[in-house]
Design a protein around this nucleic acid. Structure first.
Lengths: 184, 184
DNA sequence: CGGTAGATGTTTAGGTCTAAACATCTAGGA
DNA sequence: TCCTAGATGTTTAGACCTAAACATCTACCG
C-alpha cells in the first residue's frame, strides 16, 4: 500500500557516504538524523513561506498571532510569554510586535511612560487573519505528509518527541527549565 | 534501559491541545510531526550556531567549505552545484563566496571579464578550517542524540527518509528533479 | 519610605536568507 | 559569423534573526 521503509539512497546518505570516503575517521553517525531533520525543516519552512506569502501573511507574524489566538480569551500575553512560546529571542518579539501593531493586528498596552510593553493583545483584525489562514495552512501541510501512513506519522512523532525531550534537557537546561528563549 | 516511547506531555502536544480547545474544526493532525521537526531544527540550529561561534566559524561558511571538502579532489565546484547541495538560493551562494574569498578560505576562478564565477575551490586555509572543525562539531552533535538508542536513531532516520522523499516529490518537483534551489 | 538588584523589554550592529530584477555567458540556428 | 534564447551568476530590497549593550520596572530589604 505504501512504499517500503527505505525509499532510496538519499541525498543525506550521499553526504554520509562522501564523508566516509573523504575522511574515514569523521564521526558520521549523527548525520542520518540531524541532517534529515534540518533538511525537512528547510523544505517545510520554504513551503510555508511561499504558502503564506500567497495568503498575504508572513511566518513570523502568523506565529505571533496564532500564539495569541491559541492562548484563548482574552488573547493577551506578555512579551516574555510570547518569546518562550514562539521560540525566538525577546528582541525578536519586540520587532514582531512593532510590525504587527503597525499593521493593526494587535493592540499593545504599555507602562505609564510608554517605553515598555505590558501586554500584547489580538485585535479584531489579527483575529480574523488567524481564522482565515490557519486552517488552510494546516490542511495544506497535512497533505505533505500523505506519503507516510497514519501509523508511520505516529511513530515519527513519538520518536521526535523523545529526541526533543533529550535536546531540551541537554540544551535548554544549562540555566533553568524555561530560559534563554528556547522552549515551546 | 531508556525512557519509554512517550516521555511526557510535550510542548507540542500543548499546541495541538490548545487548537482543539479553541478551534475544534482546525485540522491538527500534521502538528505532531511538523512542529516537532521545526522545533528540533531550531534547537539544533541554535546550538550549532553557538558551537561554531566558539570555534570561530559560522554555519553558512562551514556549510560551503564542507561541501567543497566532501566533493573530494580537486575540491572545486560551480555556484550552481553549491546552491543545490547547500540547499540555498544561488544568490545566497554568491554572497557566501564573496565572504569566504575575502577571508581567504576559497579561491575563485572567474570568466574572462571577471564578472562571473566559474569555479570555487577550497584554499589551503579553507581546507584546514574544515579539518579542525567538522569532527568536533559532529562528535558534539552525536552526543545530543544519546537519549535515543541506536535502534531508535535508525528508525527515526528511516522515517525521516520517507518523509523527505515525499516532500521532495511534492515540493521539489513542480518543475524538474533538481530545480529552484532545493535538494541535497 | 528610599534604594537597589534582578527581571523584563528595547535597541542596534551584524549576519543570513529569498525573490526578483538584472547582467552575463554560451550554444545552436540561420 | 552573428544573434538570440535559455542557462547561469550577481545585485539589491526587504525580512528576520541573535547577541549584547542598554533602558526600565518592580519588589524586597532595611
Amino acid at each position: 500500500m505504501r512504499p517500503p521503509e527505505k525509499p532510496d539512497f538519499d541525498a543525506v546518505d550521499a553526504i554520509e557516504h562522501a564523508w566516509r570516503r573523504e575522511r574515514p575517521e569523521t564521526p558520521v553517525r549523527s548525520i542520518g538524523v540531524i541532517s534529515r531533520v534540518w533538511h525537512a525543516a528547510k523544505l517545510l519552512g520554504d513551503d510555508r513561506r511561499r504558502t503564506l506569502a500567497a495568503l498575504g501573511v508572513d511566518q513570523a507574524t502568523l506565529d505571533l498571532l496564532s500564539t495569541l489566538r491559541r492562548a484563548g480569551p482574552p488573547y493577551r500575553m506578555t512579551p516574555a510569554q510570547l518569546a518562550e512560546q514562539c521560540l525566538v529571542s525577546a528582541g525578536a518579539i519586540s520587532q514582531r510586535v512593532v510590525r504587527a501593531e503597525a499593521d493593526g493586528l494587535v493592540h499593545v498596552e504599555r507602562t505609564a511612560s510608554g517605553r515598555r510593553t505590558r501586554h500584547v493583545e489580538l485585535s479584531a483584525r489579527g483575529h480574523h487573519v488567524v481564522e482565515v489562514t490557519v486552517d488552510r495552512l494546516l490542511t495544506h501541510e497535512q497533505e505533505l505528509l500523505d506519503d507516510l501512513s497514519d501509523e508511520q506519522q505516529e511513530r515519527l512523532a513519538d520518536l521526535l518527541r523523545v529526541l526533543l525531550a533529550g535536546l531540551r534537557t541537554r540544551l535548554g537546561a544549562p540555566d533553568e527549565p524555561g530560559q534563554v528563549g528556547d522552549q515551546r
